[in-house]
């Protein structure tokens, strides 16, 4: 009974079958709920924009400013404007997913299989995000510098070529696994602690989880911006 109450369902998914393709339903369900909440929040905040910000608008402006600073410091004054929405979306998506996964008691909703949780605790989501970042920095480099982008691979010396090529693979790998590992590990730790000591003891770990979640969102967005900045940077 107890194992059923707080069972750890690792690697179990709620499968949706559409034609030939199979999807992890729980990931989409939570992401739709969380993104819906985010969009509602943002629509409420931007409904009546005033020059003298109040309430939600103030919070959204703070968030906007935070994202702009992040994008500007990493990408640089020249092109940060083009990439700010993407960086901001990454940050908001990861942040909302992580915090939503940690804060909302999803376990109360029973699924036939698998369980609801942070969408970022699924490897598909994090790889999707990481591949988008890879595509973005290639696109940013090529659209800003044309074929000169590939000078980056031999930048200080041609010896760097194999390492830089290797980097193109390690970047998405590290991005996706860092996020996936941190969020999944946090869910597992909280799950194990709730399973072992259901009272009080998990609370500090839950707070730690909230902290990690926020930090991971910041790290993901910052690294994405840094990679784009690296791609558009002019070497002299």
């Amino acid at each position: 009974m107890l194992t059923n109450f707080a069972a750890l369902e690792v690697g179990q998914h709620l499968y949706w079958q559409i034609g030939n393709i199979r999807l992890h339903g729980q990931v989409f369900l939570t992401s739709w709920i969380l993104l819906g909440a985010l969009l509602v929040f943002i629509s409420l905040g931007t409904k009546k924009m005033e020059n003298d910000p109040k309430g939600l608008q103030n919070l959204l402006e703070f968030l906007w400013d935070y994202i702009r600073d992040l994008a500007r410091t990493q990408i640089g004054e020249k092109v940060y404007r083009d990439w700010m929405p993407f960086i901001g979306t990454l940050f908001l998506f990861v942040f909302v997913s992580n915090w939503g996964g940690a804060l909302i008691p999803w376990r109360l909703i029973k699924l036939p299989s698998g369980e609801l949780g942070a969408p970022t605790a699924d490897i598909n989501t994090t790889i999707a995000l990481a591949l988008l970042v890879s595509l973005s920095y290639f696109y940013a480099g090529l659209s800003n510098k044309g074929w000169r982008y590939f000078e980056y691979y031999v930048h200080p010396t041609p010896i760097m070529l194999p390492f830089k090529i290797l980097e193109d693979f390690t970047k998405p790998l590290s991005l996706s696994f860092r996020l996936f590992g941190n969020i999944l590990a946090d869910e597992l730790v909280v799950g194990v602690l709730v399973f072992l000591v259901p009272l009080i003891l998990p609370i500090p770990v839950m707070f730690l989880g909230l902290f990690t979640s926020a930090i991971q969102a910041l790290i993901f967005a910052t690294l994405a911006a840094y990679y784009i900045g690296e791609a558009v940077e002019e070497h002299h």
Binding site: G11, H13, Y15, R22, H24, P112, G114, P119, N124
Partner: peptide, 20 residues
């Protein structure tokens, strides 16, 4: 709609492109 359980932690499928 709810399929059978299978997979594992590293079960990569169409969730990835759709999420992208």
């Amino acid at each position: 709609f709810f399929g059978a359980t299978e997979g594992g932690l590293f079960d990569i499928n169409a969730t990835l492109p759709l999420m992208a």
